[in-house]
Structure formats: C-alpha cells, structure tokens
C-alpha cells in the first residue's frame, strides 16, 4: 500500500512528487502553476472579503460528502452569505503519517470538483506530515478570498426591522445527524445524507431578485437556533419562529428524538438562513425554491420589536419557549 510518510512533508523530493502528482494534477490552474512562494492575484473589483476555517471532521468520508468537499463548502459559504463573490481558496493539510495516498487523492479530487462547481480557484497550499497519533488522519484548513460587487450591499443586523421574514433554504439538522449516525457505537440503520454543498449560486439567485435582504448566515455548528441568537444579539429586536413551519426530515427528527437532541441545534453544512423585508419575502422564497439547493425553502418566522434580543419558538400547540444559544456538548441521553 502506498502511504504518506514523514518524508512527504520534508520539503524534499518526495514532497515535490506529492505536490506534482496529486495537488497540481487536481487543483491545476494558471495562478497555482506560477509555483512561487506566494501567488500573485489580479486586483479585485470591489471590497475584499476574507475568511478562514479548519476542518477536523470524523469520519472523513460520510454520506453526502467528505472532509475535502466540506473544507471547500464551508469556506465558500462563509464568503457567499457575507454577500461576497468567492474567487480564490488556499488549502493547508496536516496529515498523520500512514494515511493511504489513495485516500488523500480522493479527498483532493473531491476538493477540486467542489471548487470547480463553485467557480473558485485553489491558488495556494501547504502540506505538513506529523507522527502517528499527532492528528487523526487528516486535518484541513482553507482560507477564502472574495469580493463584494454591489457597493450598496450592506448586510448587517442593524438593518433588521419589525415584520422582516426569516427564510431557511431547506431541512434542518441533516449534516449533524448524518455524522452522528456514522459514529462508532451508534449502529443506526438510517439513510441520512449530509447537506454539505456550496451555496454561492443560491445566494446569487436571491440577491439578484431583491435589494431588501438584511442578513444572511449559514447555520453550521450550534444549528439554526444558535445562529439566529448570534444575529439578533445587540439588534434590540427579537425573532419568533413557528414550529409547524420548520422543515425537518422525518428520519432526522426520529434520530434526534432517540438521542434527546433538537434539530434546531444540530449543524447544517448547505443551508442559508435569510432575513428579508416582509414585502420581498415571497419573491425571495420563490427564487430560492427554483434553485435545486433551495427547493425545500420555507418562511419560518419573523422579526418582532420587543427589545429583548431573544429567539422565541411558537410551539405547535400554541405555547412559547425561548431558544437560547447552544451550551452543551452533543451527548446521547441515558433514559
């Protein structure tokens, strides 16, 4: 078996061979192939957006994606929901010695495919190899660069007004529950696929149709409830969600119930939550639904003016509860 050894990270001949045979082969583009210590970029036409994220997911392959796809989606989505057009990505790998090179290539190929799909170039990279046990197989860091084309676009919680609608682009909790179902010891026979996907085209669709989008976020770790709490913090407004309007797949709901979890707090990796004026809400909803990644979009709540910075949930039977930020670890319950 062909495996990664410490010499692949030494900077010598083996490293160069790895770069050429795997990274250049898959990531190939004019900027990367400058092969300099840094890549020189052309001027971007607008304000520049930068974001960085590290990926340590376990297992590294899961239904609907893998650590490579996720590392590209996560960073592109952070740019897109800030209203930026994603342009470039840099990648840093930390690899545990002994990793099968075929596995690395599978991950790299998945990254290339995802970046291509989003029309983003991978323009710089780095590889380090560490001793067995120092990391768990492979960790990836990606940094994304984009620009904000529309000078007037200003997404900020201060813009949020009473009556604005909250739209989610699809079902909640798919990614988190997919990963939970793959974990050792949880022998769940369920078919939950991660929603891991790039959102820049969906975001383009909705920004093209409305100038009234106030705020967008991708509700990843901590789930929708935590993301909405982050948005509303300091805005002097509150949000009311309607439980009956929340899209959740039946299998995700069942698994959450068995483990004592709430899909509102479970991670998504291919969803955007949008706050938009009441007037434009249906127009935006329709535009989102036309995109395959937004086909299950739904209006799930609205902004109210109670000055308390809270997220409330109106339950199916008409009760109200407060949705706080997530504070606990995801652990199974015991009875």
């Amino acid at each position: 078996m062909n495996v990664i050894t410490l010499s692949h990270g030494s900077g010598g001949e083996t490293t160069h061979k790895l770069i050429k045979d795997i990274f250049y082969k898959h990531f190939e583009n004019d900027i990367l192939l400058q092969q300099n210590d840094s890549s020189i970029l052309q001027k971007l036409d607008g304000k520049i957006a930068v974001t960085t994220d590290s990926f340590v997911i376990k297992p590294i392959f899961f239904p609907g994606g893998d650590i490579g796809k996720l590392s590209i989606c996560g960073t592109i989505n952070d740019l897109a929901v800030s209203g930026a057009k994603p342009m470039y990505i840099t990648v840093g790998f930390i690899i545990e010695e002994g990793l099968d090179i075929n596995i690395l290539e599978k991950i790299v190929s998945s990254m290339a495919k995802t970046a291509k799909q989003a029309n983003v170039k991978i323009i710089a990279g780095d590889t380090k190899v560490v001793e067995k046990g120092s990391v768990d197989r492979i960790f990836i860091n990606t940094t994304g660069i984009g620009f904000v084309k529309d000078e007037e676009l200003y997404l900020c919680a201060n813009n949020i007004k009473k009556g604005d609608k909250i739209i989610i682009s699809g079902t909640l909790g798919d990614h988190g529950m997919c990963i939970m179902s793959q974990r050792k010891g949880l022998d769940f026979d369920v078919d939950i696929k991660s929603d891991c996907n790039v959102l820049n085209r969906l975001v383009d669709d909705l920004l093209n149709i409305s100038k009234e989008v106030k705020m967008m976020r991708d509700p990843t770790r901590g789930g929708l409830a935590t993301t909405l709490n982050e948005i509303i913090e300091g805005s002097h407004k509150s949000i009311v969600l309607n439980e009956e309007d929340l899209p959740v797949k039946e299998e995700v709901m069942s698994m959450c119930e068995m483990l004592g979890l709430d899909p509102l707090y479970v991670a998504n990796e291919g969803k955007v939550v949008v706050i938009v004026s009441r007037e434009d809400a249906y127009k935006v909803l329709e535009a989102m639904k036309r995109n395959p990644l937004g086909k299950d979009s739904a209006i799930i709540g609205e902004v109210i003016d109670d000055n308390k910075n809270k997220v409330y949930l109106k339950t199916e039977i008409g009760g109200t509860r407060i949705l706080n930020m997530y504070t606990e670890d995801l652990l199974p319950r015991i009875c």
Binding site: D262, L313, K314, T315, E316, I317, G318, G319, T320, R321
Partner: peptide, 9 residues
C-alpha cells in the same frame, strides 16, 4: 412540558 410550552397553556 418545556419543549412544547405546556406550562403557559
């Protein structure tokens, strides 16, 4: 009881 907001009702 809390999840469904039953106390209020």
């Amino acid at each position: 009881i809390f999840k469904n907001g039953i106390r209020d009702l």
